[in-house]
């Protein structure tokens, strides 16, 4: 989404008539941030500065909101974002092992991105597929039952692919 093209009333939708201008611009902030991130992969500083002017919200406040939520990133991200689930069910079925294995294989720690931007490794609370534990997600795809070396190797191949 181009910052210049944001139409506040259109983004707010039906409730627009009853909100003050201030409430409106604030109300669409998270939604707009989501769209910027979807387009660019992260929230570049220069775009946030433009957004601050456009919506008339102080830059500090935009950063305050964006940094509160886990989904927003201020640095470029890997092409594949791999999230290893450390939810209860996955945890008791050995997802820590999956995480350690990936950290060793790619030489990065959880939360980091490889230098060539192939992948970003993260952990996630629970993706809600506890029946398939342990699971990891590669972008939006869920890989389930990662038990044993064969499955682990397959996971690594899928990431490299």
């Amino acid at each position: 989404m181009k910052v210049e093209e944001i139409d506040v009333d259109n983004e707010v939708g039906e409730v627009s008539e009853i909100l003050s201008q201030n409430e409106k611009t604030k109300g669409i902030l998270i939604h707009v941030l989501q769209q910027i991130q979807e387009d660019m992969g992260y929230l570049p500083d220069e775009v946030l500065r433009k957004l601050s002017k456009k919506l008339n919200i102080p830059l500090s406040e935009i950063y305050s909101v964006a940094s509160f939520y886990k989904m927003f990133h201020f640095k470029p991200r890997g092409k594949k974002v791999v999230r290893v689930c450390l939810g209860t069910a996955c945890y008791v079925r050995g997802s820590k092992k999956v995480l350690n294995m990936l950290e060793n294989e790619f030489g990065i720690k959880s939360g980091d991105t490889t230098e060539d931007l192939t992948m970003t490794l993260e952990t996630v609370g629970c993706v809600g597929c506890c029946g398939l534990a342990p699971v990891a997600t590669i972008n939006d795809n869920v890989v389930g039952e990662i038990i044993g070396n064969k499955k682990l190797e397959k996971l690594i191949d899928d990431i490299r692919e």
Partner: peptide
Amino acid sequence: FQGAGAFVCGEATALMRSIEGKR
């Protein structure tokens, strides 16, 4: 309204602040 990844937003007042575009 799609959340942005914060467990505490399951709490009612936090959820409403989130819809209002705040932390």
